[in-house]
Amino acid sequence: MDKTLASPNAAVADIPDGARLMIGGFGGSGAPIELIHALIDRFRETGSPGNLTVINNNAGNGAIGIAAMIKAGMVGKMVCSFPRSSNAEAFNERYLAGEIELELIPQGTLAERIRAAGAGIPAFYTPTSFGTELAEGKPVEEFDGKMYVRERWLKADYALVKAETGDTVGNLTYRLAARNFNPLMAMAADRTVAQVSQLVPPGGVDPETVVTPGIFVDGLVEVSEPQQEEVLVRAGVVY
């Protein structure tokens, strides 16, 4: 078995219009910039994929990554917990103009809904958001004297994740706090592709240190010395 893909372009070549797309990362850490930019290249050349639903904690920063996807007009809907970052003008402009839809989810509920999808659990109860406007219309139930809100799993067609080291059968490790949503999203999509800073043969990742087991990963592409979102934003890079 070898899940290696030839290039970032090859990794995103079959994502269709209207796909639900999970993209790993939190703020500037752990974002698979090269995979996102390959997707933007494809959209600019072919007009596809458009009308994407993007699931990420934020709604893009600066003029690269998810923000550049929004600017390019590929995103119909964002599903996130915190779209109002300091450099989120790309999303803000389209949202306030009514050109992009937003599903706002508390951060821990977003993480758990993704985890539940990966674990085959269609719904769960959480205390988070009980009694708030974000729980309106959701079933509630009392357990041991406390009220909880029922939340559904959150699945995707594709997940794009960034990892530090991967072996060719898909086992992944992450770098520092760049782990964040990546292992959860890898579990929750029909097809998961990872960009890794180092691609090694099977046995090159110590089984004791594997964070995402290869069963959750369908394809990997090596991007050595990947770009870092926060560094790009601070440098004012426009993609």
Binding site: S81, F82, I105, P106, G108, T128, L134
Partner: peptide, 15 residues
């Protein structure tokens, strides 16, 4: 008005 954003606040108040 504006762009709503909740982050982890609704989670942090529980537990």
């Amino acid at each position: 008005k504006g762009v709503p954003a909740v982050g982890g606040a609704m989670d942090l108040v529980h537990g």
